[in-house]
Design a protein around this nucleic acid. Structure first.
Lengths: 202, 202
DNA sequence: ATTATTTTGTACATATGTGTACAATTGAGG
DNA sequence: CCTCAATTGTACACATATGTACAAAATAAT
């Protein structure tokens, strides 16, 4: 009960994600966000509490629509090389197709805030470390299913793949052609023996 | 002639580099920089013109002391694999030894400003693209000297190496141990056949 | 219809930030 | 010593930004 909110909270989270993606976290002041949403700061504080709390929500929302979300969703049994191939191909396509060259909101936030904003650092650290662990888990599935050799250094390979993904997500700001990004990705994937030609329909 | 400046300009550039490295470009307001240097904004504007002009100077200064400066200095004939091995090893060491986990000022600036700040975007774009070209040039030296096979895809490998370097420079904010960073680097370098065990004294 | 509850609008006090203007200061050269 | 030229200090006029406080508005439940 009580007076209903005059705006759609879900829609607002998506809008705010785009504002922060466009401008960065610190440049997305409560004033600026509120004005762009057409609400008052009063309503902002009432609905979201603080920018920090809001950011956590925004980052969750971003993760669920990011090009590497397939890594979070995957469950064994799965063709590991093909999964990585498709995820990296999709990442290159997504980054290149963004006309504004905004890169990745998660990685942008890590460089802007990690080890700077005391409250948000743990979250962003975990964004990276959790992702590395996740990749390592997926690699162990590949070893267990015999797709990958038992000799594989899953930890080293996970770190290597994450460095590639992060690198692409930043490099895409200057390297705007999908073919170039994909060449970077495919060269590393092939060298690591993690590339598998996808079937024609994907 | 005229009244002499009350501060050392060279020292100021180095101080400002560290302020921008610590806090980021936008957070390094003219007010904040001036106060930290102990000068007035008046003196700031007089000495540096604008924050943009200053940033270009700061970035030059940074480049000359960054861990991958060896790539800019290298001339043929040179052991290419060893050069890349040493540069990446030095990059991992430098990033891990920074207690504040600030990453790379150049890459931080690319994510913060490239495609956002209209005036600085060309400079930052060139920082990335020029570096890729430079790596490719060095790779061609390796092919010409027969150290590397003629079949090598120098462009793809250059993109791959740059993605690795950029990735490490961001990942180091969350992955703080040198051994972990180096494992990421060495795994990729080895896969690309760009790793060469350095002699004991380096 | 009245009450309870929540959102929304407006205002306050304060801090940061920009760029410019102009006078005061300082030191070298004539 | 005095003038020139550059730096420095102070002030102005704004715009942005934060967090809080409290009254006004809008709805649901009684």
């Amino acid at each position: 009960m009580g007076r209903p909110t005059a705006f759609d909270r879900e829609q607002a989270i998506d809008d705010i994600m785009n504002i922060m993606w466009d401008e960065g976290y610190e440049a997305s002041s409560v004033k600026a966000i509120s004005e762009k949403l057409g609400i008052t700061r009063s309503s902002f504080y009432n609905a979201f509490g603080s920018r920090e709390e809001l950011f956590k929500e925004v980052l969750m929302h971003y993760a669920e629509q990011s090009p590497d979300y397939a890594l979070a969703l995957a469950t064994p049994p799965i063709d590991v090389k093909l999964l990585f191939t498709l995820v990296f191909r999709e990442a290159c396509a997504a980054r290149a197709s963004d006309k504004d060259g905004r890169g990745c909101l998660g990685i942008n936030s890590v460089t802007e805030l990690c080890n700077r904003d005391e409250k948000l650092t743990p979250l962003l650290e975990e964004l990276i470390l959790g992702n590395i662990k996740r990749i390592e888990t997926i690699l162990t599935w590949g070893v267990e299913s015999k797709e990958l050799p038992r000799s594989l250094d899953t930890h080293g390979t996970a770190l290597s793949l994450k460095a590639l993904l992060v690198g692409l997500n930043v490099m895409c700001k200057a390297v705007r052609e999908e073919e170039e990004l994909w060449l970077a990705a495919k060269t590393t994937l092939s060298a690591l023996d993690m590339f598998e030609e996808p079937p024609a329909n994907s």
